[in-house]
Amino acid sequence: MTETMKKADLAEVIADLEKVVQEKPENIMARHHLGLVYRQAGRIDEAIAALEKVIEQDNQSMESMINLGAIFFERGDTDRALELNQRALAVSPKMAEAHVNIGLIRQHRNEVNEAVASYTTAVQIDPRLITAWINLTSAYTMLEEDDKAVEAAQQAVTLEPDSPMARNNLAVALYFKGEFKEAQRNLEKAQELGYSVDLRFVDALRGKLTEADGQ
C-alpha cells in the first residue's frame, strides 16, 4: 500500500468518524477514536480538541487521558502530560502504563530517582511490561547503579530476547559494569536485530576490549 493510499484511507476513516460524532455527540468511543486518527494523520490540534472533549464528557476516560498526555509530552509540555497521567492513575491506581509514562516524564526532567520509583511501581503491577524494564535500565544507568541496571536489562531480555532495544540497553549496562565481552555479545545481537547502535559506544567498547586483550 502506498503512502498516498494510506492517507486516503485515513481521510475516509476521519470522515466516517466525524459523521458519527456529528450525528451522535454523546458517542464518546467514536470521539476517542477520532482523536487517535487525527493524531495519526498529523492533525494534532484537532486530536487535542477531540480527546479533551471526551474527558470533558467522561472524567473516567483513562485511555483518552493517556493518549492526550502522550501528545503533550511530544510537544514538550511535561506539566500537562504529567497532570493527565496522574488523573488516569486517580481513576485506576494500578494502571501500569500511566506509571511508566510518569516515569518517562520524570526521567526527561532529570528527576531520575522519582522515575525509578514510577517504573518500579509499574513492574510490581505488571512484571511482564517490557517498556518498564527497559526504561528502568536506562534510569539506573543514569544513576550509576550498574548492578541494578544489568538486572533490569536482563529482565527485559528474558521477556523479549529479540527486543533490539533491550539487547542494546543490556550491552550498555554490562559495559558500565565492566563486563565488556558480554556487552559486545549483546551489542552484536542488537545490531543483528536492526538496532541503530551509537557508534561512539561501539568505539568505546572496542577500546575497552583492546585494553583487556593487551593485559
Score class of each variant (00 low, 15 high):
T158K: 14
F180R: 11
V157W: 00
A149C: 11
P93A: 04
K19W: 01
L170A: 12
E114W: 06
A49I: 06
Q107K: 12
A30H: 03
K189W: 14
L34V: 03
L104V: 00
Y175R: 14
M95A: 10
G103H: 02
E18C: 09
M142N: 13
L68S: 03
V20S: 04
L36R: 08
E46W: 03
L187S: 01
R106S: 07
M29V: 15
K7C: 11
L193R: 11
A149S: 14
H32R: 10
K94F: 01
L143K: 05
A98M: 05
L159E: 00
A156V: 11
A212C: 06
D126K: 10
Y119E: 01
G178N: 13
K19L: 04
L82F: 10
I102C: 08
P164H: 02
A122Y: 02
I55W: 00
T158G: 10
E111A: 11
E160H: 12
Q60S: 11
Q184W: 04
A166H: 00
N101T: 04
D146E: 04
E23A: 14
D79Y: 06
R75N: 12
E160P: 06
T158W: 07
K19F: 00
Q60L: 06
Q107F: 04
L159A: 11
P161C: 14
A153N: 13
A49N: 02
K53I: 07
Y195H: 12
T78Y: 09
Q57N: 04
E52P: 08
V91C: 08
N85R: 11
T131W: 01
E56A: 09
A11N: 15
G214H: 15
A152Y: 01
Y38S: 04
I71T: 03
Q22W: 09
A190F: 01
E46K: 12
I125N: 03
K7Q: 15
A41W: 00
D198K: 10
T120S: 13
A70H: 08
D213H: 09
E52D: 00
F180I: 12
S196Q: 14
E97T: 04
H33I: 09
I102Y: 02
Q124N: 09
Q191I: 15
E179C: 07
S196C: 08
R106A: 08
M5L: 15
